[in-house]
Design a protein around this nucleic acid. Structure first.
Length: 481
RNA sequence: GCUCCCAUCGUCUAGCGGUCUAGGACGUGGCCCUCUCAAGGCCGAAACACGGGUUCGAUUCCCGUUGGGAGCGCCA
């Protein structure tokens, strides 16, 4: 057993609701969740919606929905930054009062112009400090508020993934923390919230790595102890470039709709950038037991689409029938317009299909021949197997099956062997092989040339339906349609 | 351009100075099983980006090159 943590671990996931739950975000959430659970800590959900232009309630719902689907439960929240304005204003007042921040009356246009000139002169731009010592009061007119950086505060930290990290103060610059309309900017809001929510470990994407130095300055200015930081490399596309919405399937929703199990998707995401020796399969419980920050990779991972179907099948094979059936219903509704009652026959075919499917959608598709009363023969398969030569043995087997009193695997196979034996030798060039007869029957009863074992399939389809389909196939053989 | 970061099979990764003729998994090729498709079993191909150091000894440590990523907003 591992020892208990010295303090109560608190992590958070802080998405901005400007779209669907991205797999990169989902993985960050997974890591934060797993780390909190691993240490018996608390996982907080916070919605960063200070950008009112882009944030929507629909996106927020989609993000929450995605987290729930992945079974990442949170202990506190969702909190919305849009509802916490007083907190941020108070923090700004405090910073202003202590001289750690100052009002800046430079307009966007002025700033843009000076920045342009600096860059043209071949120098790098951070705020030039025009208002830094001007001492503008509240009556100075429209103004933003900037944090006053001081050289004495080292902007370094020991990243739990990347090790010693930091940036020089002059590279960071006095950035704006409050807009001219009084609303808070990202940096201010995160830091104030992380302090107020007593977050101990900030686990986020490397795109925030360069924000950390400035935020460290904010913690110091606010008189707070910064949390630990762990930056997680990005997930990139199959071309090694940043994930693109056009090329890559980036939303968690996409994987759900494709018919992947949440557990499989979660496992897939987990192994993208995290490892535990050679282990590939991790149950939710194992994740909670084994997850650690030290084993997170420092290089970006490509979304390995090849591994997901395999993982998904592993989970499909292991899923208890009641849960499998439940998971399948949305796909039946999509395919048939209705859900299906749990029947013995359906369960049986589903069990046979587990070894043959990678997604719930595939499974539904393949089980349809049992669900439908009438099927149609796949043209290519019919053309290949419904031949003149097979007519006689096919008809003979149909007759024997019609006379069968006990419709079970043993009987079906016995009669099948009899027909085979009857067609062996004599004037025939070669004796009738098992496959020669099995394939036409398979096409007859399933419509395709791929299915589970032929006798099992016949058995569960039942005598009546099997005979009916065989009769139709015989008609096809004789009349070509 | 500047700042920060990364670099093992096609992909996800193990490796934390000698155990490496570099391990696992997916994918891929072959074989076995076999009524089809799978599943399963066995076997194979496949990588330490390059160049310098440090060291008795580098995949492992340092520097550079190359390649890639992130960020440079009154976005988050």
């Amino acid at each position: 057993m591992t020892t208990a943590p010295a303090r109560n671990i608190r992590t958070r996931f802080a998405p901005s609701p400007t779209g669907f739950l991205h797999i990169g975000g989902a993985r960050t959430a997974l890591f934060s969740w797993a780390f909190a659970r691993r240490h018996g800590g608390t996982f907080v959900l916070r919605i960063e919606d200070t950008d009112q232009e882009r944030s929507t309630r629909e996106s927020e719902a989609a993000v929450l929905d995605g987290l729930q689907w992945l079974e990442l439960d949170w202990d506190e929240g969702p909190f919305r930054q849009s509802e916490r304005g007083d907190l941020y204003r108070a923090a700004v007042e405090k910073l202003l009062a202590t001289g750690r921040a100052y009002r800046c009356i430079c307009t966007k246009e002025e700033l843009e112009e000076r920045k342009q000139r600096t860059i043209e002169a071949g120098q790098k731009w951070t705020y030039d400090g025009k208002c830094r010592n001007a001492n503008h009061g509240p009556s100075a007119g429209t103004s933003t508020v900037r944090l006053r950086l001081d050289e004495a505060t080292p902007l370094t930290w020991n990243d739990l993934v990347f090790g010693p990290s930091g940036q020089a103060t002059e590279e960071v610059g006095d950035r704006i923390i409050q807009r001219s309309d009084g609303s808070p900017l990202y940096h201010l809001a995160v830091v104030v919230d992380d302090i107020e929510m007593r977050i101990t470990h900030v686990i986020r994407g490397v795109d925030h790595q360069v924000n950390t130095a400035f935020q460290l300055a904010l913690y110091h200015a606010l008189g707070a102890t910064p949390p630990e930081f762990a930056h997680v490399p990005l997930i990139v596309g199959t071309d090694g470039k940043k994930l693109s919405k056009r090329r890559d399937p980036v939303s968690v929703q996409h994987y759900r709709d494709a018919g992947y199990l949440p557990a499989a998707t979660r496992n897939w995401l987990l192994r993208l950038g995290w490892s535990h020796g050679d282990q590939e399969i991790f149950s939710r419980h194992e994740i909670v037991q084994l997850f650690d920050l030290e084993s997170i990779s420092r290089s970006p991972a490509q979304a390995d689409l090849g591994k997901l179907p395999w993982l998904s099948q592993q989970y499909l094979k292991a899923l208890p029938m009641p849960e499998l059936f439940q998971a399948l219903q949305p796909f039946y509704r999509r395919s048939l317009g209705r859900e299906l009652p749990r029947t013995h026959d359906l369960e049986k075919i589903l069990d046979l299909l587990r070894d043959r499917s990678h997604t719930l959608a595939e499974m539904v598709e393949m089980s349809l021949f049992v669900v439908h009363d009438n099927i149609s023969f796949e043209p290519k398969a019919a053309q290949k197997y419904f031949t003149r030569e097979i007519e006689a043995p096919f008809a003979a087997l149909r007759d024997r099956y019609a006379a069968l009193e006990s419709w079970d695997i043993a009987s079906l196979e016995r009669e099948f062997e009899v027909v085979l034996a009857e067609n062996a030798g004599e004037g025939k060039a070669a004796k009738l092989g098992k496959g020669k007869l099995a394939q036409p029957i398979r096409v007859a009863i399933t419509g395709t040339d791929k299915s589970p074992g032929i006798f099992e399939t016949l058995e569960l389809l039942g005598q009546e339906r099997s005979l009916h389909r065989m009769a139709e196939a015989l008609h096809f053989i004789r009349h070509g349609s």
